[in-house]
Simulated scan of single mutants.
Amino acid sequence: MIDPAEKERLERLEARIRALKKAEVANTEKGHMDEHYSQAQLAWRMVVELVAGLGIGFGIGYTVDLWLGTMPIFLVLFILLGFAAGVRVMMRSAAEVQRQQMAEQAAKDDERD
């Protein structure tokens, strides 16, 4: 037979375990939502960077073509350069986010140990 004091101690322990599991589930759901929004923000950031590169290239090319009287040559050239610049900035942003995620994962791994 189990001593009443021992039984009460086990019930308190079970209650603590249930509370910790609920807190862990709540943190997991919150983390998933934060990750979802951060991924969406990253995608929009990359789209904006690419469109900005194209827009700036278009503006410079069109202006140079109007100034020199050579209509499509510089427009096409600077649009391609703007596209290349936009892709380069996107790749830099992706590398930055990857470094941040690796640092966060390393911190989580250190906490577990």
Rank of each mutant, 00 (worst) to 15 (best):
M1C: 07
M1K: 07
I2R: 15
D3R: 11
A5C: 00
A5R: 07
E6V: 03
K7V: 01
E8M: 03
R9D: 01
R9H: 02
R9G: 01
E11A: 06
R12C: 01
L13F: 10
A15R: 11
R16E: 08
I17Q: 09
R18Y: 06
R18E: 13
L20T: 04
L20S: 06
L20D: 08
K22D: 07
E24V: 00
E24G: 03
V25D: 10
V25H: 04
A26R: 09
A26M: 05
T28K: 12
E29F: 03
K30F: 00
G31V: 00
G31W: 02
H32I: 04
H32W: 03
M33F: 05
M33R: 10
D34R: 04
Y37C: 09
S38W: 06
S38C: 05
S38V: 03
S38I: 01
Q39I: 12
A40G: 12
Q41Y: 10
Q41D: 11
Q41F: 09
A43W: 08
A43L: 12
R45E: 05
R45N: 12
M46L: 11
V47I: 13
V47F: 15
E49M: 12
E49K: 12
L50F: 10
L50K: 10
A52Y: 07
A52G: 04
G53L: 01
G53H: 02
G53P: 00
G55T: 06
G55V: 03
I56Y: 10
G57Q: 12
G57V: 04
F58W: 15
G59C: 11
G59S: 14
G59F: 12
I60G: 07
I60P: 06
I60V: 15
G61H: 14
Y62N: 14
T63Y: 14
D65H: 08
D65A: 14
L66H: 14
W67M: 11
L68G: 03
T70P: 00
T70D: 11
M71Q: 13
F74H: 05
F74I: 02
F74N: 06
L75K: 14
L75H: 10
L75T: 15
V76W: 03
F78I: 01
F78K: 00
I79A: 00
I79S: 01
I79P: 05
G82C: 03
G82W: 01
F83E: 10
F83M: 11
A84M: 11
A84H: 03
A85W: 06
V87S: 02
V87K: 04
R88N: 07
V89W: 02
V89N: 05
V89M: 03
M90G: 08
M90S: 06
M91T: 06
M91H: 12
A94E: 10
A95N: 05
V97F: 09
V97T: 11
Q98F: 05
Q98S: 13
Q98I: 03
R99D: 14
Q101E: 13
Q101H: 15
M102P: 00
M102L: 15
A103E: 13
E104F: 06
Q105T: 13
Q105E: 14
Q105P: 02
Q105C: 10
Q105D: 12
A106R: 09
A106T: 02
A106Y: 00
A106H: 00
A107Y: 08
K108V: 04
D109T: 02
D110F: 02
D110N: 00
D110S: 02
E111L: 05
E111R: 06
R112G: 00
D113F: 10
D113V: 03
D113R: 11
